[in-house]
C-alpha cells in the first residue's frame, strides 16, 4: 500500500515534469515563431495531433473481442455522424458517450 509521503512525492514529481514540458518550450520557440517553417507547422499540426490523440485513446480496445469492438465502432460512427450533421460538439460528445455507456453496460458478455 502506498504511503501518503510516497503519493505526495509522486504527485510532485509528475507535476514538476509536466509543467516544465509545457512552459520551457516557450522560451526556446517563441523567438522562432516568425519563421515560415514554424508557421507551416502550426497550421498543419492541429488536425493531425487531434487525430493521433483520438487514435491513442482507443489503444485498450482489443481488436478481436466483439464486446470491445462493437460498442466502440458504433459510438465512433455516432460521434462522427452527429458532428458532421449538427456541428454541435456538446450533442456529439454527449450522444456518442451515452451510446457507448449503454452498449458496454448491456452488451451480452
Amino acid at each position: 500500500m502506498p504511503t501518503p509521503f510516497y503519493l505526495a512525492a509522486s504527485v510532485a514529481v509528475s507535476a514538476a515534469i509536466t509543467w516544465g514540458l509545457r512552459a520551457l518550450p516557450f522560451a526556446v520557440l517563441t523567438p522562432l515563431r516568425r519563421s515560415a517553417v514554424l508557421r507551416y507547422l502550426a497550421r498543419q499540426m492541429p488536425t493531425g495531433i487531434m487525430l493521433i490523440l483520438a487514435l491513442y485513446t482507443l489503444r485498450e480496445v482489443r481488436p478481436t473481442v466483439w464486446a470491445d469492438v462493437v460498442p466502440t465502432a458504433l459510438a465512433l460512427a455516432a460521434a462522427i455522424g452527429l458532428h458532421l450533421k449538427t456541428r454541435n460538439a456538446v450533442i456529439s460528445v454527449l450522444g456518442a458517450t451515452a451510446l457507448h455507456v449503454a452498449l458496454s453496460t448491456f452488451w451480452p458478455i
Partner: peptide
C-alpha cells in the same frame, strides 16, 4: 469514451 469522442470532434 468521452475522451475519444472529444478528440474525434476536435479532429473534425
Amino acid at each position: 469514451f468521452a475522451l475519444t469522442a472529444l478528440f474525434v470532434v476536435l479532429t473534425i
